[in-house]
Simulated assay, not measured.
Amino acid sequence: MKLIGKILVYLIWAVNWVISLLLVFSCYGSLAAPMGQWPFASLSGLAFPFLFATNLLFLLFWLLLWRKGALLPLITLLVCIGPTLKYCPIHLLAPRRAADADLTVVSYNTESFGTRVNKEWSVKNPVLLHALGFEADIILIQETHANIVRAAKRDKDISADYPYIETESTTSGQTCMSKFPIIHAETFYFEDSRNSCQYLRILLPTEDTLAVYNCHLQSNHLKKDELAEYRQFIEKPTDSTHYRASKTVLKKLLESTSLRAGQARMIADMAGTETARYFIVCGDFNDTPFSFSHRLFDRFMNDAFSRSGVGPGITYHEYRLYYRIDHIFCSRNMTPLHTWVDRRNKDSDHYPVISKIKLVK
């Protein structure tokens, strides 16, 4: 019996090693692909929540059974502490600083203002009202709906609050609603994709120019049954059965991840040479904080949520898949004071991200 017990412990120990290595890879995998050449490395971040939770369970298990065994999951967690705090920050005092903000920005993939659910195409649309309710200075929308935007432009109350509205609805559909003058607007279309980036220059009350890149990077285009396979795979990445069943899903994910890497590089190149005093890159990235596209902007910009948010900040919630794939990045001379995700309206498959930002004079 003792021999069987030892063999069982060693088997569990071996599984713990595999989980630990996968956890480290999920945190740092995108670093292995400096130009996004290996999409699987960037994709590995999707498994982070499940790998992290499993590693915690191993830590508790070894503490109860064999304390020396707890060193492996403990060291793994310490190695991953930096990325973990980026994924799930704990800036508990951030709300107290919000009163000092100069600018409030909302980024919101509205999924056509949630019309799939609410069937409302007027200015009474719940998702539109939800976005307006934040009283933000600038509202940046992805997956807009042209009819609702036109109705908003005609509405006296909305146009009084947001006299400057620019929309692009031929591809992924971005819209900007601003309290400040929009002095330039154009759209950059990504090659071999229906997605795009809306570029705007906004004149702030300080007479400074704010450049905004309102992005919707490549979608995964997974069907409902494929999403179920996808969830099974990321919950049990070591299960070969799910891996074989998910070949089609993985192929789509890898292809879309590769496309997003190229799209992110295009926007990063433009933002890196931006002449406006302040600039923001935001929108639906379809990528987690451990992806290549996120790391690309994080190198020279401030990730608003990682620097002033609390918790995982889940923005996508459809099909029981919960990730932060919507981001707000601001230039280094802009300080995020308080950033949060509002979950009150579920008509869209995304939640809005709101950030209160201080301009460094």
Rank of each mutant, 00 (worst) to 15 (best):
E135A: 10
Q142Y: 01
I183Q: 14
Y164K: 03
T167N: 10
S172I: 03
F134C: 01
I139G: 00
K156N: 12
G133C: 07
E191C: 00
L128I: 09
I148W: 02
I165H: 01
E168T: 11
K156F: 08
T175A: 12
Y164E: 04
A136M: 01
A185G: 12
D137P: 00
P181Q: 12
F180P: 06
S159I: 11
T167P: 00
E135G: 07
T170G: 00
I158V: 10
G133N: 12
R154V: 10
I182D: 04
I141M: 02
D157L: 12
K179Q: 08
A131L: 05
I148T: 03
A131W: 00
F188G: 03
G133A: 08
T187W: 01
Q174H: 14
H130V: 10
Y189C: 12
C176H: 07
E168F: 14
D137S: 01
T171G: 15
K179L: 00
A146F: 11
Y162R: 04
T175K: 05
R154Y: 10
E135Y: 10
K124V: 09
S159V: 09
A136C: 02
R154C: 13
K156Y: 07
L140R: 01
G133I: 04
K124T: 12
S178C: 06
T144H: 09
E143D: 15
I138Y: 01
A160C: 03
E135I: 06
I158M: 06
E166C: 13
A185K: 11
S159P: 07
A146I: 14
L128N: 09
E168I: 04
E135R: 04
K153W: 00
L128T: 05
D155R: 14
T167Y: 07
P126V: 11
N125K: 06
E166K: 14
L128E: 04
L129P: 11
P181S: 13
T171E: 13
A152V: 03
R150Y: 11
T187D: 05
K156T: 12
E168L: 07
Q174G: 11
T175Y: 04
K124C: 13
K156S: 12
